[in-house]
Design a protein around this nucleic acid. Structure first.
Lengths: 190, 190
DNA sequence: GCTTACTGAGACATACATGTATCATGCCGG
DNA sequence: CCGGCATGATACATGTATGTCTCAGTAAGC
């Protein structure tokens, strides 16, 4: 078996697989989970048959998409150095990272098609919760609400920010800044 | 044609129609837009054929559901007397009303199946925007963000609050209070 | 009791997305 | 230049949801 037949390591494989994933992110974020794979294949510029050669079924595609999004988000969060920043700064970095990624992968959040619940919790939920818990412990964040509830409300604001960027009503930078600012300080003037 | 044949005004019609709408709200909020009408019919305690007699197709059912939700929400907002309350109080009443209704009709918000975009804007968007604009004009709400952006962020927090109630992690009252409190004052302690 | 009309059960046609299989084509490396 | 291999086009089988239709049962009203 020559090396060129090793599809999964050939550079062309990566290119096509990435194109399909990219198209999937685009199409799914537009039509939601109701999008059909024919549209994804068309958007990727490949035939439907080829799509199935790379991802044997819908679930595999969604899983790969989720894994890709999770990897990218985890990488950004890792780079963000959350634990070395102040809580305020960490919240702003969280907002930037999540809006930047979510802009393309919003489907995964709105649906419950998390690739790996445990992995997502470890890579994303953990660091986020850590920031909130640090803020609560230091008295910088209100103590009348649990970290979990605060996290959910923050996530909701971030989802709204992502929607604003998808509708081109705000840039990613402005949207994430707005969400972080309102979440931290509220709607009242400082 | 005797009066009893006038299906659309018979009391039984209303009862069955309401039961179907109620079941639809329940099933759709659980399975999202992917729910099938057979499940809705079963949940309503009627046969699939009967469901189609009342709502000739899926779109009609969704439209009726949206209209019902919109009517209920508009009624609550009307009762809330938003324009006579302070901005803070108005925001809290908005949160209560929307969480109470959205608890059952969250599908409509997450999907884009608004029954009548214009009507929804007039009955809900208008009053909400009015509250934010009043707050901005009176200096009670920050001026660095437009009323539209604030509205979206608030809506995002409310969606998160609705999810919390649906997962029974918080009661409707607590969830709406939390969303309103964080939105008004932010995550920092007062 | 009888008529009327609503209902449930089920068959049925249809549309569509999914997933599989086949075959000819065309490109790329050797 | 040639052989292999990925691709595209296409047909196919399948499952599922939608919407329609018919018919018998049944409950309510006269």
């Amino acid at each position: 078996m020559p090396a060129t037949s090793d599809l999964k390591t050939a550079p062309r494989f990566d290119r096509t697989a990435a194109a399909i994933l990219d198209a999937a992110a685009h199409v799914f974020s537009e039509h939601g989970n109701a999008a059909n794979l024919a549209d994804v294949a068309a958007a990727a510029g490949v035939s439907r048959a080829t799509l199935y050669r790379y991802y044997p079924n819908r679930e595999a595609l969604l899983k790969a998409l989720g894994a890709h999004a999770l990897t990218e988000l985890a990488s950004r969060l890792d780079d963000a150095g959350l634990e070395r920043a102040t809580v305020e700064e960490a919240v702003e970095r969280l907002a930037r990272a999540i809006v930047a990624v979510g802009d393309r992968y919003a489907v995964l959040a709105s649906e419950q098609c998390t690739p790996d619940e445990v992995e997502a919790e470890r890579l994303v939920g953990g660091p986020m919760r850590a920031v909130f818990e640090r803020g609560i412990a230091s008295g910088l964040i209100r103590q009348d609400l649990t970290a979990q509830v605060l996290l959910e409300l923050f996530a909701g604001a971030l989802m709204a920010a992502i929607k604003l960027t998808q509708r081109h009503q705000l840039g990613a930078e402005e949207a994430s800044a707005a969400a972080a600012a309102v979440f931290l300080n509220g709607a009242r003037p400082r």
